[in-house]
Every structure is written in structure tokens, then in C-alpha cells.
Write a protein that binds this DNA or RNA. Sequence first.
DNA 1: CGTGTAAGGAATTCTGACACG
DNA 2: CGTGTAAGGAATTCTGACACG
Lengths: 102, 102
Amino acid sequence: MDRNFLYRDKKVMTMKIVVEMTGLSERKVRYYETKKLIFPERTSSGIRKYSFSDIEKLMDIAEKIEDGVLTREIRNDFFKRRKKHINTRNDTIRGQLNAHFK
Amino acid sequence: MDRNFLYRDKKVMTMKIVVEMTGLSERKVRYYETKKLIFPERTSSGIRKYSFSDIEKLMDIAEKIEDGVLTREIRNDFFKRRKKHINTRNDTIRGQLNAHFK
DNA sequence: CGTGTAAGGAATTCTGACACG
DNA sequence: CGTGTAAGGAATTCTGACACG
């Protein structure tokens, strides 16, 4: 429903909760923000607020990072939904994660 | 879906967010908890965590309180889904909010 | 590049209590 | 009964930086 959409995208969680749910460190979560991968809102006093969809996105990002994908590439992937394969380079690691972009 | 259910009932919001969303004071939110109207979870360090359904419940509670309903009555209403009408008393205020229990 | 950490301050949250009624 | 508030401490969050690589 329309309501569920609100639940999913409403920015209501603070860092602590995000860390608990994703298993990532605060450092990583903030870093991905500087890299324009996630866009939390802020309370009037500056505290970051995340949504359920942010949580999902973070877990997706974490998975790609582990596979060796660069934040910059992940970002491009988000921006241009269908991006050409990243086969410009061909080391072992790269080959393994192409599935993510197919 | 099953997923939306998770979003709605997952306890992820801290007091600040709850206050912002409901417009209630921290005092009220905590008081309704002592009266067994809401049941937030706690982080390992003791910080209360609320869900979207808690937010909705709080707004419902606030409305009834404004109408003069006692927390005790609201609680009974929650426990026994279909409770007999509260017409034991009959002052003006009471008459006006019977709709809530019909 | 991606991430850990110590540093210091600011904002949040918690509990128990006094107050009014 | 329902709610405001001052009190003091504990836990959270924030930023900028140094470090490694």
C-alpha cells in the first residue's frame, strides 16, 4: 500500500540502530555517505536519521565492497541504473563480481 | 506483504523521533508506558526503541486522553478487544466519547 | 581507497522525585 | 490522575584528524 511506502522510506533511525541492524561500523556508514551512496536526513540538532530502505541499501553496499567493488563504481551503478559492464579491467577479483552488474 | 509487517512493528525509533512524530512530550510517552499502554524495547544500554505501530498507538492514546478517557480504561480496551460499553457513568464528557468504544 | 581509533564537545536519554491537583 | 520540571549521570553522536596502505 501507500502506507508501507512511507514506513520504508521514512528516515527515523539513528546510528546506533543502523549499526545493530547492518552489522557495519559507524565509520563505514558515515564514509559511504561522504561517497554519496546514502543520504540520511538530520534532526534539527544534526543527528543523522536513516530509513529501512537505507538499511537495505547499506547491506547491499557492504556486500559489493566485500567483493571488491569501489564506492565510486557503486555510486555510478546507483545513478545510471543500467550501466555498461565494468570489464575495462580483468583481474581475478573483478571477474568474480561481474554478476552484480549483469 | 510480510515485509511490510516487519517495517511496521520493528522497534527502531528512539524517544526524540517519537516526540517529533507524535507531538507528545517525553513525559507523556514514558507515562503511558508505566500504565502498560505501550511496550517499547530497549537497546543493550537501556535506550527505549519504538515502532511505527507504537507511534500510531500513541496518537490514538493521546486522542482518547484528550477526550477524558482514563489510561486504565484505554488499557482495558486494548486487552479485551470487545469490552462492554463504559456507560457506568454518564457525564457529558463521557457521553461524547462513547463512540470510541462502540 | 576504505576503515580503525583517540579526542573533546554537544545532544539525547534515563531514573527518581517534587509539584499541582 | 496526568504531566511539567530541575538534577545528575550515563550513553550516543558528531566532526576533523592521524594512521595504514
